[in-house]
Amino acid sequence: MGTSPFDLPFAALEVGKHLYWQLGNIRIHGQVFMTSWILIGALLTLVVVGTKKMERDPKGVQNLLEFLWDYIRDLARTQIGEKVYRDWMPFIGTLFLFIFVSNWGGALIPWKLIELPSGELGAPTADINTTVALALLVSLSYFYAGLSNKGLRYFEYYVHPTPIMLPFKIVEDFTKPLSLSFRLFGNILADELVVAVLVFLVPLVLPVPVMFLGLFTSAIQALIFATLAAYYIGEAVEEHH
């Protein structure tokens, strides 16, 4: 180990350690998949329970699901526009819901009670692999959205409104996934670290407001990621005149 800040004595937290699963000749981070499966399972359970018996007068979980659906539709419609938002709403919604349950699940469920041989369970979004995967999916999506909607005319976007913009627009294609992934990763990891360090130093009372702040940040990050993804798709399908 070098002299990374995570080697300081108080950080007996297991930062950057992973539970490796060997699948053939590839290795994956087991703890990320374990938590993501649990959280996806919870999300799907909620969805299945809520959509089991839907009525015109919504009851119970159906209310929550309809609220979420409406929220996601508004988000997608404002950012992408009336014309194609329907095609992208499931993707935007899945991003939002997955990041949201990951962030909150990582913050709310006492994962520490489960001992792993290496690494520790936490929010799947606190792993750079997850956030980069999501950000690359967003990049692919907006390229696909632009090309499928406008064909090769999509590339007019790069010289719009003047050809001077070309280098900046090309750089943007790289900075978009970079900023998306690092923003989410940094926020969630920082939140987990702050809470862990505070708990380590002052185990009582003091971490609680920070935990609430963490919940707030987590929700905001899910919203920011989904909104930006929708905005990029909207930008790609927008018609220039």
């Binding site: 981070h29 692999n129 995967a133 999501l134």
Partner: peptide
């Protein structure tokens, strides 16, 4: 630490 977690995720 990037590995196959990324594409699988």
């Amino acid at each position: 630490d990037f590995d196959a977690t990324l594409p699988l995720m």
